[in-house]
Nucleic acid binder design. Structure first.
Lengths: 104, 104
DNA sequence: CGATTCGCTTCAATATCTGAAGCGATATAA
DNA sequence: TTATATCGCTTCAGATATTGAAGCGAATCG
């Protein structure tokens, strides 16, 4: 196990910072915010983050089709806060948004 | 271009934190510290970080076979410092070392 | 001299990711 | 009621990224 397993997955950090920023997000909105992620990969990323207890599902009221949303656990929130300086630096120095609509 | 292009590459963050920690490293030592990176990928990662002016080569005295070492640019050092909180959290909460000798 | 070490590059096998299609369940419209 | 749209996914084939062994030219070591 290594840094790589958390940090070396293509979308892990993006998903954590995105959920952290919004406090709570459903599958669809995450997918739309990260336009180049495939649903399969997003699903796998979320499952992996749930296993690490960084993200968890919360039941949601209202639309019955969307039964749950994703939010950060206590632990995940700490991770999110620890990522903020890096996220900020990346945004400032490389015009990098969490939403990466363009291509590399 | 997006967060993903810097953060979504398998070894980018590991390489930056590793060089940052040692101030200066040659290709071989980096490779040996990250045992599961292939020389091809390490080479590509370093080139990409050079293009972004996060890493640069410095000439080295002594062994003539190894003409240069890699170090962080001014900008790269800022990035490194901004990554420290996250790196620290990951180490504390997931027993994650920069050197990931084991497997996931 | 020959053997070893250095920083890579090449290449085939494998792992990972994409994007379109589709599914069961619910919702919304006619 | 029926038809259609939307929700969170899953499946799968094709594209892309990574691995690991092999090898190369140059320099060092013995």
């Amino acid at each position: 196990m290594g840094l790589v397993d958390v940090v070396g997955k293509k979308w892990g950090i993006c998903v954590v910072t995105l959920i952290g920023h919004h406090r709570q997000l459903r599958f669809g909105p995450i997918q739309r915010s990260l336009p180049r992620v495939s649903p399969a990969t997003l699903s796998a990323t979320l499952r992996s983050l749930e296993q690490r207890e960084i993200v968890c599902k919360v039941p949601i009221s209202g639309d019955g089709r969307a039964s749950a949303a994703y939010t950060l656990t206590e632990s995940g929130s700490e991770l999110y806060r620890s990522m903020l300086p890096m996220a900020k630096w990346l945004r400032r120095n490389h015009n990098l948004e969490i939403h990466s609509k363009g291509r590399s």
